[in-house]
Simulated scan of single mutants.
Amino acid sequence: MIAYIKGHLAAIQDESVIVDVHGVGYEIVCANPFVFQSSLNKEILIDTYHYVREDIQVLYGFKNKDEKYLFTKLISVSGIGPKGALAILAGVDIEGFVSAVEREDDKFLTSFPGVGKKTARQIILDLKGKLTNVFSVSANKEHQATNDENNSVSYYEAEEALKALGYTDRELKLVIPVLKKENISNTDEIIRKALGLLVRN
């Protein structure tokens, strides 16, 4: 098992990063490769999960060990593969996610792409009580999880609208994290500010 990769961050692609380790380029698939933008052309250490099946071997990378741990738990859920787990990690606040699982809030869970009611119930069935041993959930996360649910829907709607205007996933991955830091939750405002950033880029 390859636990981490340490080397020179040589490139950032739409769905992965390339890390050069003594002349060997390792492609590492990430939920949002652009979170590593500030480390481009610098030495970096990325926590990884080496996914091996009969017909495929993939290295998945994470911002930190918490993300990696949640990924391993998500792919243990029936109906969720690595791509589905990455889609959840791409827009999740970990404490809010854990809180939603503990509350059995399937409405929050179905706000993630590819997660229907059946999968949401399976997540709750398989993970409830198993994440709080690692992730602490503060009292205010109960309220925040509700806000996160609304925000996830708003950002999903905004991204779909921007894609309809012709913007690519690569372009959106550059601006959406910036807007999330500003705690913008209204769909129209997200679109308006995103367009402003996209025009500047």
Results as ranks from 00 to 15, higher is better:
residue 2 I to S: 13
residue 2 I to C: 13
residue 2 I to N: 14
residue 4 Y to G: 12
residue 5 I to W: 08
residue 5 I to C: 01
residue 6 K to E: 15
residue 6 K to S: 15
residue 7 G to L: 10
residue 12 I to K: 08
residue 18 I to C: 09
residue 21 V to M: 14
residue 23 G to T: 10
residue 24 V to Y: 12
residue 26 Y to P: 12
residue 29 V to L: 13
residue 29 V to G: 07
residue 30 C to F: 11
residue 32 N to H: 06
residue 32 N to V: 15
residue 37 Q to R: 12
residue 39 S to L: 13
residue 40 L to P: 14
residue 40 L to Q: 09
residue 41 N to H: 10
residue 41 N to W: 00
residue 44 I to G: 01
residue 45 L to V: 13
residue 50 H to Q: 11
residue 53 R to N: 11
residue 56 I to W: 01
residue 56 I to C: 10
residue 57 Q to G: 06
residue 59 L to S: 05
residue 59 L to T: 01
residue 65 K to C: 05
residue 65 K to Y: 05
residue 67 E to A: 01
residue 68 K to T: 12
residue 69 Y to M: 14
residue 72 T to C: 09
residue 73 K to E: 05
residue 74 L to K: 05
residue 77 V to C: 06
residue 80 I to D: 04
residue 82 P to D: 00
residue 82 P to I: 03
residue 85 A to S: 13
residue 87 A to D: 11
residue 87 A to W: 00
residue 88 I to W: 01
residue 88 I to G: 02
residue 93 D to I: 05
residue 94 I to Y: 09
residue 95 E to D: 09
residue 97 F to M: 01
residue 97 F to V: 04
residue 99 S to T: 04
residue 102 E to T: 03
residue 105 D to E: 06
residue 106 D to W: 02
residue 108 F to Y: 10
residue 109 L to A: 03
residue 111 S to A: 15
residue 113 P to Q: 06
residue 115 V to G: 04
residue 116 G to N: 10
residue 117 K to S: 15
residue 117 K to D: 14
residue 118 K to W: 00
residue 118 K to A: 07
residue 118 K to C: 01
residue 126 D to C: 04
residue 127 L to C: 09
residue 130 K to W: 06
residue 134 V to W: 11
residue 137 V to I: 14
residue 140 N to M: 12
residue 141 K to C: 02
residue 142 E to G: 15
residue 142 E to R: 11
residue 142 E to V: 15
residue 143 H to L: 12
residue 144 Q to S: 10
residue 144 Q to T: 10
residue 149 E to S: 14
residue 153 V to E: 12
residue 155 Y to P: 05
residue 155 Y to S: 08
residue 157 E to L: 03
residue 157 E to H: 00
residue 160 E to K: 14
residue 175 V to F: 03
residue 177 P to K: 11
residue 178 V to S: 11
residue 179 L to T: 04
residue 179 L to P: 05
residue 183 N to D: 12
residue 185 S to F: 02
residue 188 D to Q: 14
residue 188 D to H: 04
residue 192 R to Q: 05
residue 197 L to H: 01
residue 200 R to L: 06
residue 200 R to S: 14
residue 201 N to F: 02
